[in-house]
Design a protein around this nucleic acid. Structure first.
Lengths: 334, 334
DNA sequence: CTGTTAGCGCTTTCAT
DNA sequence: ATGAAAGCGCTAACAG
């Protein structure tokens, strides 16, 4: 910038003004400055400006994994909104690991991010985040989970418990009473735990005993879904329906059923969660819970870029069941 | 930091040293400083340090879309490597749009990123990038494409042309002579154009005339694949095999075939590209080209974090055909 | 309209 | 081992 000033025969302050607030400068000077900048290949430095203004125009985004079409939509939502307002997004993946998550959050904080958007926060780091939020150090948005009540923490998510309950009810309504569940590691994530609770709620209402043997706790990916389903289908009294609390798990489960020569939904019904784009392209198309992932990202982004000190704000989005062909009535033994 | 200094009764310089280069400070002082920092909830500011040192510890990563399991793997690779070396990744998606890409690159440059990792650079922005790279302004890594020869630009990718040629040869070897192609927008992306060229190479070698009518140029997603396949299958003389230059397109195509009651590979063979994790979970599992997306990301990350001025370095990874069940011999009309 | 000056949070000489 | 002071690239307040 000093170089530019010298070349244009003006002070650095004028350069700054010419480039950033052209209203205060004569158009002749603006031209001079612009062309000097052009000649020198000058590129403005937002970072320096941030430092001086004691602010930050970066938001940190923490996701479990970057390679999911689902979180991907949320990421898009966040990026679109933040880009409009001149913010950049530093993104990192935890791989469902608390230690990685902590390291990630640390590095984000050291960059003094304006906001932290957290997907699937593990219990391990909750206290720390709460303290940060309470002190107004950064804005904190927790995403994908039903609103809680922590001062300074905003939530954008869905009611996982209710959605899981409704899907389980759907299966019960089809006549199923032995319903397997494949679910993420619920001991660590609220989101997942709530899905388990919803499942149990529905069973209880229908007077079906909860059987821990047919609940599989797995990392949400294709292979784990397949393996879990295989165990389930290998049981002496096997479930007639399986609720996979993620479409990834459901697609894996579908594969396992196919390999065992079981027809879906003839022999066993399979339901998923999330409505990932692939779900409708499976054979049969998968019954699932629609989640507006992009919208969640947008809202999270909007909240994130608000000035520090703006009160927390929470949204709980509705999510509908999408009944496709992977679930059907229980087979009546002839 | 000044606060910490005051509370610990030392100068800011000492605080800086105590926290960042403990070797130069007495352990008593370190303790004092540490506890003062703790009490005040002090968090180090990397950004300020970057400014002062005239460097940047951020790399910019540009991808076509964030919601792809494939680019997701590349992102993971980059993140894992950069995290180890204290870099953060600012990531943005172009959505296959040149204008968005340009805006994104601008914002990255204004943050004075240490390096720019570009996936699927469009022609529109090539000149600009080349100039940047030549001037040593940032490190530039172009990813997913076969190495070219531009001073200052590193490449990490695959030989798209050769891979596409081999897949087409595979189909030809199965007896197919009328082979449809569904491919991304090749007018704008080198990666995609090379796949088209590979396809043509193979046809030519086999003495098959190139027929532009059975080449569909589509955005790589499920729906477009489905629609393109539907057009192809609606033709009077329809192709007996279709090469979809992305697994996303292939899965969409599979759906279209299924809806038309065509058996795969009985009535029509379908091949994909990329080896996305979903491919093996389709029915039938999809024949495809394996691409080591994570490895590509790692290499790109390694090159990116090297000091400015380090010579460019390029890698062209091998990629094997993965023959699954979606391709088979041509049906001999009885 | 434009220049001068001070200073953001940090690190690095250079003294002490 | 510690402190004082200068300075990274930028902007805001104050003069002129």
């Amino acid at each position: 910038m000093r170089e530019v000033a010298r070349r244009a025969n003006v002070s650095v302050a004028t350069v700054s003004r010419a480039l950033r607030s052209p209203g205060q400068v004569s158009s002749a000077t603006i031209q001079k400055v612009r062309s000097a900048a052009e000649d020198l290949g000058y590129v403005y430095n937002v970072t320096a400006s941030d430092i001086l203004k004691g602010r930050s125009t970066v938001v940190g985004l923490v996701v479990p994994t970057s390679s999911s079409t689902l979180f991907g939509e949320t990421i898009h939502g966040v990026q679109d909104v933040t880009a409009e307002t001149g913010f950049s997004v530093i993104q990192g993946a935890t791989r469902y690991d608390a230690v990685t998550e902590e390291a990630l959050i640390d590095s984000l904080l050291e960059r003094h991010v304006h906001a932290l958007i957290l997907t699937g926060m593990t219990y391990a780091n909750e206290d720390r985040i709460r303290r940060l939020a309470r002190d107004g150090w950064t804005r904190v948005v927790v995403v994908w989970e039903k609103p809680g009540s922590d001062p300074g923490i905003s939530y954008v998510g869905i009611d996982n418990r209710s959605a899981a309950e409704r899907m389980t009810e759907h299966l019960i309504a089809l006549g199923h009473r032995r319903i397997g569940l494949i679910v993420g590691p619920y001991s660590r994530q609220a989101r997942v735990r709530h899905r388990l609770e919803g499942y149990r709620d529905a069973l209880e209402k229908a007077g079906i005993a909860f059987d821990p043997d047919i609940v599989m706790e797995r990392r949400p990916d294709l292979l784990e879904g397949r393996e879990a389903m295989d165990s389930l289908m290998g049981m002496e009294v096997r479930p007639t329906a399986v609720f996979a609390a993620s479409d990834l798990l459901a697609i894996g489960a579908l594969k396992a059923a196919r390999l065992r020569g079981l027809s879906v939904p003839g022999d066993v019904s399979i339901a998923g969660f999330d409505d990932m784009n692939f779900g409708a392209y499976q054979d049969p198309p998968i019954t699932t819970v629609r989640v507006e992932a992009y919208r969640i990202g947008q809202l999270a982004g909007q909240i994130a870029v608000e000035p520090i000190g703006t009160p927390e704000r929470s949204y709980c989005l509705d999510c509908d069941l999408v009944i496709r062909s992977s679930t059907g009535p229980i087979k009546t033994t002839p």
